[in-house]
Design a protein around this nucleic acid. Structure first.
Lengths: 142, 142
DNA sequence: TCTTGACTTGGACTGTGTCCATCGTAGGAT
DNA sequence: ATCCTACGATGGACACAGTCCAAGTCAAGA
């Protein structure tokens, strides 16, 4: 059993076969699946699992802080199980590929008091945009 | 006529009454409207304007670089006419309020070569999250 | 094993955005 | 000033992501 499943069970998360496969599908590094992708992968092991259940499970994992929700653009949210190590995202403007990155420096420290407008800050997300090695090569006709 | 309208006309943007009201609605600082809000405001002046036209006009303004698209969460995109001055966004986790902010430092400089994975970087967006003064006050029962 | 409340299901529903065939019109040509 | 025509507007159907709900199912404690 993975660490994730062990942690969830330890926190009193009622374990069902559906929740198990969702958690298993999300296990690993550099995983950034959409809800539909999670559903498709889960359905390979448990064909009857419903979309609603996947959405429920993902929502709970996010609420528990085990998985982070990443909105890279106007498309579907992606779910990132690497929520315990603080990191940011590098997104390919061409194909949508997402990589975890670890910038130096703390963006929160870069926001002076005069620019906080009385807000109580809780965090900052940085999204780097660019072209991945495949998309960056000049397109070539056949 | 506003600077925005003048610039657009100068760039050969065919001016119609619909495009005019969309551009006028978006004029100003600290404007972060959703497409539906733009449509509603535009419809006050031009009741027959259709949603498709608003979406078309917004898409063109974004393509022209006159307006920036901001995706703060899984909800509707917001349109920010303040695209010429580089800035980042501060979003209230409670009510969704968006403010423009100007952090010091350059997030791009914080991403070491070893963390770029061969990408050609084009920019970085920083989204600060927190509670605005209204939402930050402890809720009080009546 | 029994019980029960939490979980799952699937289908309807909502919000956001896109597409497309048809109609209308801005702006150049005359 | 008027005409032409290509570009823009229209609105309704469609697509996608996500939520909600009533009814059925099951995990886990007693």
């Amino acid at each position: 059993m993975s660490d994730l499943l062990r942690r969830l069970r330890g926190r009193g998360w009622r374990m069902t076969s559906q929740r198990r496969v969702v958690a298993e599908v999300l296990d690993g590094d550099h995983v950034h699946l959409t809800a539909d992708e999670v559903h498709a992968l889960a359905a390979e092991r448990l064909p009857e699992i419903s979309r609603a259940t996947v959405y429920n499970a993902l929502g709970e994992l996010v609420a528990l802080g085990e998985v982070a929700e990443v909105t890279t653009d106007g498309r579907a949210k992606r779910y990132d199980p690497n929520a315990h190590r603080s990191h940011q995202h590098l997104v390919c403007s061409g194909c949508g590929l997402v990589r975890d990155v670890h910038p130096s420096g703390d963006p929160l420290a870069d926001l002076p008091e005069s620019e906080r407008f009385g807000f109580t800050l809780s965090g900052a997300e940085v999204t780097y945009r660019g072209l991945c090695p495949s998309c960056g090569e000049p397109a070539r006709d056949a």
